Amino acid sequence: MAYIKTLSAVDHTQAQGDQKALLDTALKQVGFIPNMYANMVNVPGVLSTYLHGYSAFRQKSGFSPTEQEVVFLAISRVNGCNYCTAAHSMIADKMSGVPGDVLQAIHTGQPIPDARLAALFAMTQELVKNLGQPTAARVQEFLDVGFDESHLLNIILAISVKVLSNYSNHAFGTEVDERFAAYRVG
């Protein structure tokens, strides 16, 4: 249920100052203004922080594009964000090379048929569900498949970024952009 009712999406053509600069940056990065960005920019610091953290995760996390999508999907699924689940499902399918059976397993809650991706998904979900306090067994399982402790911090970065987007989408009841509509889950 949307609970921000008096703020509305900022129209890029009407935006000024920090809002315009951020939306210009977003337009250059993704080629359009996602509904999520138009909502987040109501408070420029929200969109600015999101864009900075998202870029840092994408460029410097040490995760492959496939692994990055598994992380983002794990977080968005736990947080119940249909918008981000649809968007990252489209990116997973069209851009990041996530195997179809892995994406299907994530969508249906079935076991992921790749041990490394399964451990990554489980670790990420446990960090979100347990507020950053995973079990020692889960951490060991994660390390045993070849990840290291810096990967744990990068998951925390991704969680921070997704909290901004997932929670903003809940607050606004953000409509899934047409580009992502075919990837709606549930």
Rank of each mutant, 00 (worst) to 15 (best):
A56D: 15
D11H: 05
G173D: 06
Q16G: 11
K60A: 15
F32N: 10
V41Y: 01
L152Y: 14
I91L: 13
K5S: 13
N82H: 15
A171K: 08
T66V: 12
P111T: 08
L7V: 04
L120M: 04
D18E: 15
Y83K: 03
V163K: 01
A136H: 03
A171D: 02
T174A: 03
G80A: 11
M1C: 10
G62V: 10
I91G: 04
E149G: 00
V70A: 02
A182G: 09
M90C: 09
I112Q: 00
A136E: 13
V176N: 03
V30S: 03
H88P: 10
Y183E: 02
F32V: 11
V161Q: 06
A137Y: 00
S48C: 00
D177P: 06
L131Q: 15
S76A: 13
L164H: 13
R116K: 15
A2L: 04
A122T: 12
G100W: 00
Y37S: 09
E149M: 14
L152V: 15
F172M: 04
A181S: 11
V139E: 12
A119E: 06
K162N: 14
L73F: 07
V163W: 07
I159N: 11
S64G: 08
F63N: 01
S96R: 08
S61T: 06
S55H: 14
I4K: 09
D114V: 03
A26L: 13
K129A: 15
A119N: 07
A136W: 00
F147A: 11
S168K: 03
K20Y: 08
L153H: 13
D11C: 03
L143Q: 04
E67M: 03
S96L: 06
M123E: 09
V145Y: 11
A171E: 00
H52M: 13
V78M: 05
L153W: 14
K129V: 14
V70R: 04
P44R: 09
V30F: 09
R77K: 15
Y37N: 11
P113Y: 01
V161M: 10
N130C: 10
P34Y: 02
I112G: 05
A74H: 02
F142W: 08
G53K: 09
K20N: 08
G53I: 12
R184Q: 14
A26Q: 13
S55C: 00
L103V: 05
D114A: 06
H52I: 13
